[in-house]
Design a protein around this nucleic acid. Sequence first.
DNA 1: CTGTTAGCGCGTTCAG
DNA 2: CTGAACGCGCTAACAG
Lengths: 338, 338
Amino acid sequence: MVTIKDIAKAAQVSVTTVSRALNGYDDVNEETRKKIKRFADQLGYSPNMAARSLVSKKTKTLGLLLSNVTRASSKDNIAFEVLCGMNDRAGELDYDLVLFSTTPQKQKIKSYKNLCQERGVDGVIIMGIRLDDPYLEEIVSSDIPCVLIDIPLQGPNVGYVTSDNIKGAYTAVNHLIENGHSRIGMINGHAQADVSIQRLKGYTDALKNSGIPFNPTRVLDGSFSESGGKEAMYRLLSLHPDTTAVFCSSDLMALGAVQAVKGLGRHVPDDISIIGFDNIDLTAYTSPSLTTVNQHKYESGYQAAQLLVDLLEGRNVSHHIVLNTELVKRESVKRLPL
Amino acid sequence: MVTIKDIAKAAQVSVTTVSRALNGYDDVNEETRKKIKRFADQLGYSPNMAARSLVSKKTKTLGLLLSNVTRASSKDNIAFEVLCGMNDRAGELDYDLVLFSTTPQKQKIKSYKNLCQERGVDGVIIMGIRLDDPYLEEIVSSDIPCVLIDIPLQGPNVGYVTSDNIKGAYTAVNHLIENGHSRIGMINGHAQADVSIQRLKGYTDALKNSGIPFNPTRVLDGSFSESGGKEAMYRLLSLHPDTTAVFCSSDLMALGAVQAVKGLGRHVPDDISIIGFDNIDLTAYTSPSLTTVNQHKYESGYQAAQLLVDLLEGRNVSHHIVLNTELVKRESVKRLPL
DNA sequence: CTGTTAGCGCGTTCAG
DNA sequence: CTGAACGCGCTAACAG
């Protein structure tokens, strides 16, 4: 390994001069800088981040804490798209991303703060965490800059990126209403997800706006999974056989719901209209293809990385970013005949 | 930040003792160790990796270099599944993963070796890189331990993980032959992918084994993309209108091929049988659902992480791992009537 | 414009 | 069993 010391020796200057020359300080003769740079190249020098961060207290790395990077989450590759966005922006801003692999077991041993400190990340992006996760309170109270995805927390060092879930859900449900539906069920995720809370509000708002009474028993949780959605749909239809349309809080659950309908020998959208949320790639390929609400997954990762770096570098920006959603009309919704 | 110095002060011992106590050396009194550990916990101590790796030359981090973590690669979320496997295994082995975001532009500036040295990763996993990538030769000549995915290179510090592509392709093509097909086309990826070379061999082997002459003009490249597959299919069918079945080197290309068939007003599998490779999630949901060759994506990531750590820790293991593949029969292949 | 000195937090000799 | 001293590679005062 070649160090600045080696360069100093070769260039016949002190290590300090080398350091300053390479870091673009202006109090160094252009001649010597040239010389030093030449030697650095020649020797194949690359700075040692460990040493640098030991003194500068900065590592130029962002931690990524996602609780659901597991085998299970592959179909819904939302996390991946978000990751791509983050990775791209982080790269552009000259930061690297380190993945924290945390399991619930490990969480018990190691505190969030310890995790970050050990790895010496400058800040953290957190995704896929539940509202009741024990880490959450540590995060806000800690002084480590942090950006949350889909969890609305703010603080001097905390920001978040999310989609406009209320409006998205509202638009979706309203689309059903406009198509003549009024007995509309909802399959939500679970109580410990902010998006579930938001999307439920969009659902009730849309009903209210059209004068349709809100019946809580028409709303079931499907825990964001395909099988959960399927099961919820069975329950929903046995509880409310008059249901003509269902809004699902995720595409995966919507897919499960479609399966349930098929399992009952009925048909989407002829018998039941279904609308999802997320616009995952799958939805365009299923039959019927799924009407859904598009979320800008890549963009949210991109913005999260940007926001975190803004926080890190002390820029005065808004600590919360809300991304638009759009209704994507496909085949799973049908106008109800009068 | 609390350091061993603080603990030393609190526990009334020297930093050396603290260091040894915390690192499990046996030449320290159990009493004092207890005391030191208590103080460490109490003060919320966490070791500083930068300082530690500065002296130990180890970072307990694995670099991950993937050239296609971009917006485009989301449908085929193979990379993501592999990533999950790596992340899981790395976590179990107490290593962290850092993502190198490399763009072709950056590659020109920074050499592979520099990239790794700067980040001070102990080793690297490389995926999605082309055979003609300039980094490749640097990698083998470098002394940084490295595991490649789907590129068969070996060396004292280099290993690889791949699937049994020849057998996979052979099985697929043989399946077509067993279903009465003999005029079988192939849509391959591109010349700079080892899997393309392997899968082509599986294709020709299968033909040869059944006494079917190999016609190179029946093999076209689709560059592993959906649109590329579509285009290749159009060309293939205009070049060889007698084609009754096509083996595709990736599911994405197969999906594109299906679209091309539909675009010609024809039908899969009635008019043309199609078989893919990878078994991506999409394939189960399309209509017709796609017959394909399953690859163990998660497993390959898992094994790659394991192999790299084995390399790192000097274990004497085989430097190449070949994973099985299996034919997954679905709806896109039909027996040819006599 | 440049060099000397000090110290970041930790592991590791070598003496007690 | 424990401590003092050194150095990893680098940046940051402080002097010249």
